[in-house]
Design a protein around this nucleic acid. Structure first.
Length: 485
RNA sequence: GGCGCCGUACCCAAGUGGUAAGGGAGAGGUCUGCAAAACCUUUAUGCGGCGGUUCGAAUCCGUCCGGCGCCUCCA
């Protein structure tokens, strides 16, 4: 079954066909680094991470580029706006580059925790000023841009296709423009490619039009095309960037090269908090670092993937609690299979007798993923398998080779593709190479001797004591398992 | 005003023409020294309301109601 992806450009689910067979060039708009990442970043980059992981699983070679915006762009295309990075640097009394560096590290820290695989290239906007100027020069030469007082603007009226992504005409946009705003632009929809720098503007570069800094949209065109070519396969980003950002990217890129810019546009939907829009201007955003204090980052990842990337996701305590319990249940199964496998690894038993159709479930899972990355559907499959496995496990009916097959199923689909299970040596598996597992197992053995003698008070005392240390014991039919709380 | 999205059980959430996945919570049961975990049963004759197309619609069309997003920085 072929992979289908919803394409914002055509508003249809399409068969995915890369430009060059077996290879995918993918660009996703990265963060502007002037603050810690919030749950919106989490949803966005986890969603695209699964897309990259799945493409790679599907045997594509993926070149994944995600920019770091370290130029603080103006709030709007007029001169009265304020540079966000500069504002933050003033607040923190640090050089803008130090601000950018600090929050870039913070960003990667949070993404690492969420299990997001790092992009192949994380280009910085400030490192590609020359490339940006080159595109602007082309646009000037071709008559798509004009200069006013040291700033350069894209002339929207010259681009007949402007509006094809967002589906809005320039007339529509004009009707919604506030009146009374003074501008040096010829048309309200024209956007800045290069801005003249006032003396107090710290981040500044020389250009053919004087000292200034690049406009907001041009960096993505410059960096994506530099690393992926003038036409590439997938461009992703948040729905809020569909207009004007991506519309402008298309305009300036296609007018500069005369070639189609992007084949598939993928937009992930936004996050709400308790039913309300989360935005910087409303100031109600939840930082990932704060959320991680209450929930395991992998639970957050699980929660995100439990809804489709194209749907809005409402962060409420109740929903997150539910996700946490669900994750615990699923992961318990994975952990128990692993533990049981380890315990009985040496047994030589005849194969066969497997009543769980692992191959069938696997193809159902892949079918869900092929249908525009339907992760909620895919995760439902994992739960169905877990239920059957738990059943068999409780009756001790599984043989080591069968458990191995189940373990591989979970690690491949839940681990490699969805990234919701940690790697095998993770502390969550109680197997991180420390002394602890051996000690706990020794205590369990001793306690089971005590239980044979029916010394319940003492055995409960041991269990409670371990509980306080964060070790949870579970007495099963003929064995006792443990996990970290 | 323009463009667009959504409305599925107490909560979260799949399902785009064939008779309602999955998770959480609740109820009952099994197992168990207890606890925990797990398993089984159960919880929407109905998918915002009303019309229409169809043998058949949560799914398509119309309309109304309700919620939201973009049009200004944001993933």
């Amino acid at each position: 079954m072929a992979l289908k992806i919803y394409n914002t450009l055509t508003r249809k689910k399409e068969d995915f066909k890369p430009l060059h067979e077996g290879h995918v060039g993918m660009y996703v708009c990265g963060p502007t680094v002037y603050g810690h990442s919030h749950i919106g970043h989490g949803k966005s980059y986890v969603s695209f991470d699964v897309i990259v992981r799945y493409l790679r699983y599907s045997k594509y070679t993926v070149e994944y580029v995600q920019n770091i915006t370290d130029v603080g762009h103006l709030l709007g295309d007029t001169n009265e706006g304020e540079d966000r990075l500069l504002k933050q640097s003033r607040l923190e009394h640090k050089h803008p580059m130090e601000i950018a560096e600090f929050y870039t590290r913070s960003y990667f820290e949070d993404m690492d925790a969420l299990g997001v695989v790092r992009p192949d290239i994380s280009p910085r906007a400030t490192g590609h000023i020359i490339e940006q100027i080159e595109i602007i020069k082309h646009l000037m030469e071709k008559g798509f841009a004009y200069e006013v007082n040291g700033s350069v603007y894209f002339d929207v009226s010259k681009d007949k296709e402007y509006g094809k992504l967002s589906g809005r005409s320039t007339e529509d946009a004009e009707a919604g423009t506030r009146v009374g705003v003074k501008t040096e632009k010829r048309h309200p929809n024209d956007f800045a490619l290069w801005k003249f720098a006032e003396p107090e503007h710290i981040m500044r570069w020389p250009s053919p039009w004087g000292v200034g800094f690049p406009g907001w949209h041009i960096e993505c065109s410059a960096m994506s095309m530099k690393y992926l070519g003038e036409t590439f396969d997938i461009h992703g980003g948040g729905m809020d960037n569909q207009f004007p950002h991506h519309e402008c990217e298309i305009a300036q890129s296609e007018c500069a090269t005369g070639k189609p810019f992007v084949r598939h546009w993928i937009h992930n939907n936004l996050v709400t908090v308790n039913g309300q829009k989360m935005s910087k201007s409303l100031g109600n955003f939840t930082l990932l670092k704060d959320l991680f204090k209450k929930h395991d980052p992998l639970v957050v990842r699980f929660f995100i993937l439990q809804s489709h990337y194209h749907s809005t996701l409402d962060f409420t305590d109740e929903a997150l609690e539910g996700a946490s319990k669900g994750y615990e249940k699923l992961f318990n199964t994975v952990r128990n299979v692993r533990a049981e496998l380890k315990r009985r690894n040496d047994e030589e038993l005849p194969a066969g007798g497997m009543t769980i159709d692992i191959a069938g479930f696997k193809s159902q899972f892949l079918e869900a993923m092929n249908d525009d990355f339907n992760t909620p559907q895919a995760m439902a499959i994992l739960f169905e398998v877990a239920r059957e496995v738990n059943s068999e496990l409780a009756e001790a009916r599984l043989l080591p080779n069968q458990m191995k097959e189940i373990d591989e199923f979970f690690m491949e689909l839940g681990g490699t593709i969805l990234g919701i299970f940690p790697t095998q040596t993770d502390v969550r598996f109680g197997d991180d190479g420390s002394l602890e597992p051996g000690l706990v197992e020794l205590i369990i053995d001793l306690r089971n001797e005590i239980r044979k003698q029916k010394l319940w008070t003492l055995s409960d005392q041991i269990r409670d004591g371990l509980q306080k240390l964060g070790i949870v014991l579970e007495d099963k039919k003929d064995t006792t398992t443990w996990k970290r709380a």
